[in-house]
């Protein structure tokens, strides 16, 4: 079954002929880039990374390491999603505005370089999740070969391991804006607070975690298995993270779970009209 899906992936890449890949340095895009490179060769593959304040530095390092190690043709472009008030106001479809810019830019790069198709790293598990960014991709003709081949995240990890990719067991690392509660404006300062707080947790040895930004509050989610360690380290962690400008540091008792801020979407949508003017004013 897995072999068949992998074969389907290689067939899709051969059909595309040449590809421009949105490359974040995460599990999916590294795997896709490596397979594309193996199937198509370096002349017909380009991995493109969009750099902005919302892109985690730790992921940038991994992206560059894989480029160096595997010889993936690579280009970095600066993106300016924070300049878009629709994005910065942080509505529940924020990703749509970010990805709209990213995929438009990649389409330009692909056209300039004569690459036939723009690809993203969406996989079969992403279907049904709250992912407005996928809508932006579809609107711009971006293809998702991992998804089209039916590959799940677990399968991509398994295949990545067999290919010797260092990302095979990398925790998911979406953009830093995903940590900021919907309706609270995305600003460079808040993104830095999130990144610095997560650097503190990483430095303390935590592996899977998020720092959720609720305005003056930092809500820490750590993997349930690491909850006791977080409690042991609580005083020091709280002091350091408060030093970044938070008034309260709270530990979520249910621990890390993917898309936790999406749990507030219904509430957000109900109050969006009330909060949107304030968020827009803040970023204006």
């Amino acid at each position: 079954m897995l072999e068949q899906k992998f074969t389907r992936l290689t067939e899709l890449l051969e059909e595309f002929g040449s590809v421009c890949i949105g490359y974040s340095g995460g599990v999916d895009s590294v795997f896709l880039s490596k397979v594309a490179l193996d199937v198509l060769g370096p002349e017909r593959v380009l991995a493109v990374t969009g750099l902005s304040e919302a892109y985690p530095g730790v992921q940038h390092e991994m992206a560059l390491e894989c480029v160096r190690r595997f010889g993936i043709p690579h280009l970095e472009i600066e993106t300016h999603e924070l300049d878009d008030p629709n994005y910065a106001a942080n509505p529940s479809n924020r990703c749509y505005f970010c990805k709209s810019e990213l995929w438009s830019r990649l389409a330009e790069v692909a056209a300039e370089r004569g690459l036939a198709v723009v690809l993203d790293g969406s996989n079969a598990d992403d279907v049904g999740d709250h992912r407005p960014g996928m809508q932006a991709a579809r609107e711009r003709g971006v293809r998702s070969p991992l998804l089209e081949a039916g590959l799940t995240k677990a399968e991509i990890r398994e295949l990545s391991r067999s290919l010797g990719l260092p990302t095979w067991d990398l925790p998911a690392a979406p953009c830093l804006a995903s940590r900021i509660q919907y309706g609270i404006a995305v600003t460079p300062k808040r993104l830095r607070q999130v990144e610095d707080a997560e650097t503190i947790l990483r430095g303390a040895g935590f592996r899977e975690f998020r720092v959720r930004h609720h305005g003056d509050i930092a809500r820490l989610e750590v993997a349930p298995g690491e909850l006791h360690r977080a409690l042991e380290l609580a005083p020091g962690l709280a002091r350091q993270i408060r030093g970044l400008g938070f008034e309260r540091v709270l530990l979520d008792l249910q621990g890390y779970r993917r898309g936790a801020l999406n749990e507030s979407i219904t509430l957000t949508q109900l109050t969006a009209d009330r909060q949107a003017p304030a968020a827009r004013a803040e970023v204006a």
Partner: peptide, 15 residues
């Protein structure tokens, strides 16, 4: 409530 949390600076521990 959407989230249930423990306040890390009000735990009875001297920080």
């Amino acid at each position: 409530f959407l989230y249930v949390t423990l306040d890390l600076e009000n735990t009875g521990v001297d920080t």
